[in-house]
């Protein structure tokens, strides 16, 4: 790295204060690196990435609120990521979302320095792969759906979702009497949820089977799904076939 180049701006995300202290101390000894800030949980991290626009995230995996992978899923800006964790079992997932490195705690100053250098060379050549990958590969089936609303993040546990409705280029998620708007395609949402519980009953509707009260025939070959709360949703011929397939 030549002198005079723009310093690498790094955001520290870890819920444990001693771990943050260690990272800050290690980073302070590295040339051409500035610390953009520290976050103690995933919610803070999502906001701080937007506000401070760092080049690199040092990201813990297990944190309260949102875990490290969920943070990545919610980011709308590209940023290089180095995971830092005491758990080795997330390594495969970490490289699937194109993490620059995966550091097992505790690690040495030299190990971090090497990882940061890799991130620096990555940052110059990066394309927008990270975000799309994080969205596409959520690893195991999602137990919760994350929705950004401005700087805040709403967590909707999957079982609280009544149904999702596709609009032009976003989804409306109906849960607990509220409606959340999420920038995602129906196919992506459907792929991330348990197929035994969530069924595409119509091109524009994904239904939580627990909410289904009954099915009504209202014209020849045309049916409605009636939910426990009385909501009526259109049921396509293919959707009806899928429901019957599940019952078998």
């Amino acid at each position: 790295m030549s002198a005079g180049a723009r310093p690498l701006s790094v955001l520290i995300v870890d819920d444990e204060a001693p771990a943050r202290t260690l990272l800050r101390e290690y980073l302070s000894g590295l040339p051409g690196v500035t610390v953009a800030g520290e976050c103690a949980n995933g919610f803070e991290a999502v906001g701080a990435v937007e506000a401070a626009a760092p080049d690199l995230l040092l990201l813990d995996v297990q944190m309260p609120g949102l875990d490290g992978f969920e943070v990545l899923e919610l980011l709308e800006r590209n940023v290089a990521v180095i995971f830092t964790t005491a758990h080795d079992e997330f390594a495969v997932r970490a490289f699937e979302v194109h993490a620059v490195d995966y550091l097992l705690k505790p690690f040495s100053r030299e190990r971090l320095a090497a990882a940061v250098e890799r991130a620096r060379s990555h940052a110059a050549t990066r394309h927008g792969a990270l975000l799309a990958e994080a969205r596409a590969r959520r690893g195991p089936l999602a137990a919760r759906i994350l929705v950004r609303s401005g700087p805040a993040v709403v967590v909707v546990p999957a079982e609280r979702l009544d149904y999702a409705e596709a609009r032009d280029d976003y989804l409306l998620l109906h849960a607990d009497g509220k409606v959340h708007r999420k920038q995602q395609t129906m196919a992506e949402l459907e792929a991330s949820l348990d197929p035994a519980r969530f069924v595409r009953i119509h091109r524009s509707f994904l239904l939580n089977l627990d909410r289904l009260a009954r099915i009504e025939l209202y014209a020849k070959d045309s049916r409605l799904a009636i939910l426990a709360d009385g909501t009526r949703l259109p049921l396509s011929r293919a959707g009806y076939a899928r429901l019957r397939g599940l019952n078998r």
Binding site: P18, T21, L22, A86
Partner: peptide, 18 residues
């Protein structure tokens, strides 16, 4: 638990200077 042990060692490393 090994995770407990590794996290404890990381805390010790983190606070060693300060």
């Amino acid at each position: 638990s090994p995770h407990f042990l590794f996290n404890a060692l990381n805390s010790i490393a983190g606070l060693a200077a300060s």
